[in-house]
Design a protein around this nucleic acid. Structure first.
Lengths: 217, 217
DNA sequence: GCTCATTGACTGAGTGGTCAGTCAAGCAGC
DNA sequence: GCTGCTTGACTGACCACTCAGTCAATGAGC
């Protein structure tokens, strides 16, 4: 109530998020966003000159939020952070909210090459993700809990794998069978086949389940 | 020239391919496709009732082509096929043709959840891809050149990884530096960190470079 | 403490442009 | 003269964006 920001700004960002989830990016109209916050499209244009401006503002805010969240975790042990990083990609097959939002993000990513400003925003978020993981790996090596490896290539491998798994889950997910979710299968494989061989002798890592619980804060 | 199909059908399919590459999926109009084959949009509607019909036909043809290509390779040794499978994802950073087409495919994938027919087509192609790899792994295990593993989970891991890497390369690729391409980095890591530990003692595998050459036929 | 100018938030009714799809007519080959 | 392919002109829907104006709050001058 006593914010500095123009009172409606956050409402609009929330509306963009909801509208993206409900309609996807390709089908997203200014009207959808306006409906979501019970305002007129004219108001959106009053605050943001163009639809693109609005979406770029939304991406930038998302990026800032993620950045903040990552900083809080920097004091945890590297191996915990590594498993947590993997776990952060996993979501239940029936979590349609998250699937829908990530689907919209994927749509935006595929528009990156056609739009400089969107691409710039997305590239920054990609860098943030990989840098976070790279730092975690470096910390682990420095602390003597991880075997020395090419941290850049390893980070690339992890991110590609988890991201690819999520892409499949959000685009092809077969309704809600009893299956556990594609990303989760891949995440478990990643831990066994890539993380475990990296641990120095005698070092243990948390299970995926433990990590999943610890990120629900 | 002496096909059963209506003579113009292949021309139209080619035009769809070109138009997808040049315009992307989101921006693709019937006019773009018509221009590409120097015909009118009315003609497209004469052959295909709706734009969706046309695109589904295009996807189905692509799938059939890929299926045919895979069958030709079924007699190669499993380890060669495995490395070839990985190599097939790799493309040079300056191969903008391929990048553009895969980008359009990614756009279509992100539309899958909103379109039953597109999703069905894409799901079939996803299954084909993973089944191919799974069979290769099973053959390798049967032949005693690969250590026994959960072939389904392993195939999932490989496909997720390569697909994720390609997604990044086509959406965020930084012009043509001297870099070697993100997918290639990841592919090399995949061979060292995932394939090599799978080989039975004394079994060698072709290098990525060899495989890259052998698929240029 | 009343008046009046100013501003910021907000709206409804357009406008112009784009695009998938329709339709009636032209025209080749048989 | 019929069949199948092809066309240009047209239509109706949709959508980002504009514009002229309303309304409430703020604040200066008296």
């Amino acid at each position: 109530m006593s914010e500095e920001e123009p009172l409606g700004a956050d409402d609009i960002m929330d509306a963009v998020y909801q509208a993206l989830r409900d309609n996807g990016y390709a089908e997203l109209t200014m009207q959808d966003i306006a409906d979501e916050c019970d305002k007129s499209t004219s108001l959106l244009h009053y605050h943001y000159d163009t639809k693109e401006d609005l979406l770029v503002a939304f991406l930038d805010q998302m990026l800032a939020d993620y950045e903040e969240k990552m900083e809080c975790r920097a004091d945890q042990p590297p191996v915990d952070r590594l498993v947590e990083f993997v776990a952060r990609f996993v979501f239940a097959p029936d979590d349609t909210e998250r699937a829908s939002f990530h689907l919209a993000l994927l749509e935006m990513r595929s528009q990156g090459p056609f739009n400089d400003r969107i691409r710039t925003s997305l590239r920054r978020s990609d860098e943030l993700l990989r840098d976070t993981l790279e730092e975690t790996l470096e910390d682990g090596i420095d602390d003597g809990v991880l075997k020395p490896v090419d941290t850049e290539a390893t980070a690339a491998l992890f991110v590609a794998m988890l991201d690819g798994a999520r892409t499949r889950q959000v685009t092809l997910n077969e309704g809600g069978d009893d299956e556990v979710g594609y990303t989760r299968t891949v995440a478990e494989q990643a831990l066994e086949r890539l993380v475990d061989p990296l641990l120095e002798d005698g070092v243990d890592r948390p299970s995926l389940d433990d990590a999943l619980e610890s990120i629900h804060d």
